[in-house]
């Protein structure tokens, strides 16, 4: 899968989901033809059979046009590929028909109990999110768990074990930060931010991963209609504002990716939010580069000066 596809349906069809983005932040690859490094790297790795999958689900509609094209490159290499579209207007019937056709691609629902099982796991995910908001779990640990919810590690037991082994700590939250936009391509940005005195208490997209669920295709369609990234900006920002207030956020880091259309949202977002915003643009994966560290440090100094 190339982005958020309801993993409960994939499991229910007896398949094992794998989010191809998971391998990117640690990747050392420099793709030959690239716009966004995320899609370029997974596409090249899939074509070269460096990631083992049987078939690919590309989230195209309501998400990413780079994925739409890079996904077709993978399809041309012979891997069975399905294109999944979210409705921009949130129409539940449309989403239900998309889920039905995905289910058809995966051979139909065989284990309906998976829906509820995953629902329960997502409740544990919400607990993790809550604890990090209260400084009881480190932002990096929380992020690692939440981001895993896109494919639930392909193994529900494995994820449950990972959740139960998260270490509780006491973290001082002096600069509460929301990290919004697409997930950063840097593998250690939560740690780096924390070292520089910024504690991430909200990860926008990973929060979407734990927020939606359902008991069957019908209810899943109704819930995933609220997936903010696929919807108009007003819908997404309306949701964001409430979340930022609830989490008493002091500043926002807007992560954008080179050659990604989400960059265009920066201006509107700055107009909409009335807290300090730092925009970071990443390109290639790896550790957080020095130029980004400088921005984070200056942002920390800036927030620290606020009355």
């Amino acid at each position: 899968m190339t982005a958020l596809v309801p993993p409960e349906l994939v499991f229910a069809c007896g398949a094992e989901p794998f989010d191809v983005n998971n391998v990117i932040p640690e990747s050392k690859r420099y793709p030959k033809s690239k716009l966004c490094a995320w899609t370029a790297i997974w596409s090249e790795m899939l074509v070269n059979k460096e990631i083992e999958i049987d078939s690919l689900i590309v989230v195209a509609g309501g998400d990413c046009h780079n994925a739409l094209v890079d996904g077709q490159k993978v399809q041309r290499s012979g891997i069975p590929t399905h294109f999944f579209f979210y409705p921009f207007d949130g129409n539940p019937e449309y989403l239900e028909s998309q889920l039905e056709s995905l289910s058809g691609f995966l051979g139909g629902v065989r284990y309906p109990g998976k829906f509820r099982e995953i629902s329960k796991l997502k409740k544990l995910g919400k607990k993790i999110d809550e604890k990090r908001c209260n400084g009881r779990i480190s932002p990096a640990d929380a992020f690692r768990i939440l981001i895993s919810f896109s494919d639930l590690c392909g193994d529900l037991n494995k994820l449950e074990t990972a959740i139960s082994s998260v270490r509780e700590q006491k973290i001082e939250l002096n600069n509460r930060i929301a990290l919004i936009g697409v997930p950063p391509i840097y593998s250690d940005i939560h740690e780096v931010a924390q070292e520089l005195g910024l504690q991430v208490v909200f990860d926008e997209l990973p929060f979407e991963f734990i927020r939606h669920s359902g008991n069957d295709i019908h209810s899943t369609a109704r819930d995933y209609c609220g997936y903010t990234f696929a919807r108009p900006l007003d819908f997404r920002f309306g949701f964001l504002k409430k979340e930022l207030e609830k989490r008493k956020v002091d500043g926002v880091i807007h992560y954008t990716q080179f050659a990604c259309h989400h960059m265009l949202e920066d201006e509107i977002l700055r107009d909409e939010l009335d807290c300090p915003v730092l925009t970071i643009q990443g390109d290639m994966p790896g550790k957080t580069p020095e130029q980004v560290k400088l921005r984070l440090e200056a942002f920390g100094e800036m927030i620290g000066r606020q009355p």
Partner: peptide, 10 residues
């Protein structure tokens, strides 16, 4: 006034 900054280093 807005406590914002941008850096062009690309």
């Amino acid at each position: 006034t807005k406590n914002n900054f941008t850096i062009n280093d690309k």
